[in-house]
Design a protein around this nucleic acid. Structure first.
Length: 491
RNA sequence: CGGGGCGUAGCGUAGCCCGGUUAUCGCGCCUGCUUUGGGAGCAGGAGGUCGCAAGUUCGAAUCUUGCCGCCCCGACCA
């Protein structure tokens, strides 16, 4: 039916791009590596933001805002942190332009060179910890629970809409605690919030786990993550939560007096999710006809399309539909009545399917006579005729059912794509032929992990929380191992 | 940074090898009429520095040189 979208089976990457571009989520911009997030795509992000923001506030966090620019010297204070981000930082060197008499354009004014260059934040640990130093003196100032919604810049070589762009939007939580145990509890609490959000709002099952040392955030003691599986069998890190230990407290000299009046460094966490979630959402559920959005996060949950001949019929349908719209809105359902006469019904059907609106209601003269409406669900494409009496409660129930079934479907796919492998040959074969997560023994060394990555492009996505302990031998080296870890090719 | 591709109307394209009327076609857009239960039909119309610059030529979208931009594949990464 869809004449514009590349089939998944033909070219998965192209399919993804088609969905993002033709679903009006985003566009390429005039700036290399940077995208324009269009209203529909931004509405998705806003929906995610609103839900998460509430969860953050419900757990005692407050929003604040820190500068976009970070003095260069800040970045070099935590060794691992510099190492991790140095290669992808945008640097501001000047603060003024001037007219170029030769070309008539503008040039950087060489007179206006900054004393100290500024880094456009790739993440805000450094500027924030530099600030926390002034905010924290005593255990009474702790815990300090701050989040910020911001843009960050990481100068990527290669970009993909939403999944990896030079600039992206995210939230970054930065907390300070009196004890390690409290900071670790915060780290896992936030991970749980992310997992809950991914599963219950995005209908996207995730595996909670810990990163291997080489995949760990630069500057963290432990990096926890939620890993999701896309329809092409590749994994995607959907969120991270870091236990930073006292690394940043030491780097920025953030000490507090405890109850015994002794000075100690505070314990830290940071955690974030980004607009990458929009890409994850697209790839987790959609099909060859367009986006499929889970009702709880869909900007528009129900669209109503009138079908009529002549103004007289239209007026009758309007009257009925406006009442339905009012009732749906009353029930908290995001609904749109598309009675524009620019396009015919068939065009609208295809368009809203492309945009992933969970439920479409079509009402025509024939339906009015029978007191029914044609209700079509996007995820299964099934159409049913529902009575206009009690329509609102039926739609509410349908939206819940869609939400649940989308999750169940994604979960069944994910669970059937966690495959154990006991030999390296099997490991390679599974990666190439089946994809998904491969559960395999690993000797725990970075060298082995690196070799496996070089040979197969698969990385350790995570060591699942509560991972069953099981003696075995490393898939590559044959050395002893006490547990299986999850490998996958990843975005 | 290496390899590949592309730049012609809002979008997608033909023309380029082999220079020569008014730059092709489709979608979209505007006007009117007919339509409306799966991307409507007819008629009329608007819209172009052929990426930029220099060169060759009587004449350049087309040939030459230089530049710019974006996309895709790789290394790097959320």
């Amino acid at each position: 039916m869809s004449k514009e979208i590349t089939a998944r089976s033909e070219d998965y990457s192209k399919w993804y791009n088609d969905l993002v571009l033709k679903g009006s989520l985003a566009d390429y911009s005039a700036v290399r590596g940077c995208m324009v997030i269009k209203p529909y795509g931004y509405a998705l992000w806003e929906g995610m933001r609103d839900v998460l923001d509430k969860k953050f506030k419900d757990t005692g966090h407050q929003n604040a805002y820190f500068p976009l620019f970070i003095p260069k010297s800040f970045l070099s204070k935590e060794a691992a942190h510099v190492e991790g981000f140095a290669k992808e930082c945008a640097v501001v060197t000047h603060y003024r332009l001037k007219n170029d008499p030769v070309t008539g354009g503008v040039v950087v004014d060489p007179e206006a060179k900054l004393e100290e260059e500024l880094i456009v934040r790739p993440t805000s640990e450094t500027i924030i910890w530099n600030t926390y130093k002034d905010w924290i003196q005593s255990y009474r100032d702790l815990p300090l629970l701050i989040n910020q919604w911001a843009n960050v810049v990481r100068w990527e070589m290669r970009t993909r809409l939403f999944l990896r762009t030079a600039e992206f939007l995210w939230q970054e939580g930065h907390t300070a605690h009196a004890t390690a145990a409290e900071a670790i509890a915060e780290t896992t609490q936030m991970l749980d919030i992310y997992a809950d959000f991914a599963e219950n709002y995005m209908a996207m099952p995730v595996i909670k786990g810990v990163k291997s040392p080489s995949e760990r955030f630069a500057g963290a003691v432990d990096t926890y993550c939620i890993e999701a599986l896309m329809q092409d069998g590749k994994a995607l890190q959907a969120g991270t939560s870091h236990f930073l230990g006292q690394n940043f407290a030491k780097a920025f000299d953030v000490k507090f007096s405890n109850k015994e009046n002794k000075l100690d460094y505070v314990w830290a966490t940071s955690w974030g999710v980004s607009t990458r979630l929009v890409g994850a959402l697209v790839m987790a559920h959609s099909d060859d006809d367009g986006l499929i959005l889970p009702p709880r996060i869909a900007p528009l949950q129900v669209v109503i399309v009138p079908i009529y001949k002549g103004d007289e019929q239209k007026a009758k349908i309007d009257e009925k539909v406006l009442a339905i719209v009012a009732e749906l809105k009353q029930a908290g359902i995001r609904v749109k009545y598309d009675d524009s006469d620019n396009q015919r019904p068939g065009w609208k059907f295809a368009e809203y399917e492309m945009k992933g609106v969970p439920v479409r209601i079509a009402i025509g003269a024939r339906d009015l006579e029978n007191n029914v409406a044609e209700v079509a669900r996007r995820d299964t494409k099934l159409k049913t005729s529902l009575s206009l009496d009690g329509l609102t409660s039926q739609i509410s129930a349908l939206l819940e059912e869609i939400q649940q079934q989308m999750f169940d479907k994604a979960l069944a796919y994910r669970d059937s794509h966690i495959t154990p492998a006991d030999t390296f040959e099997e490991f390679e074969r599974l990666l190439d032929e089946k994809g998904g997560f491969i559960s395999a023994h690993w000797d725990g060394t970075a060298e082995t992990e690196e070799q496996i990555k070089d040979r197969t492009k698969a990385t350790i996505r995570c060591i699942p929380l509560n991972n069953p302990q099981e003696n075995g031998t490393c898939i590559l080296t044959g050395k002893p191992s006490v547990q299986r870890v999850l490998f996958a090719r990843a975005y």
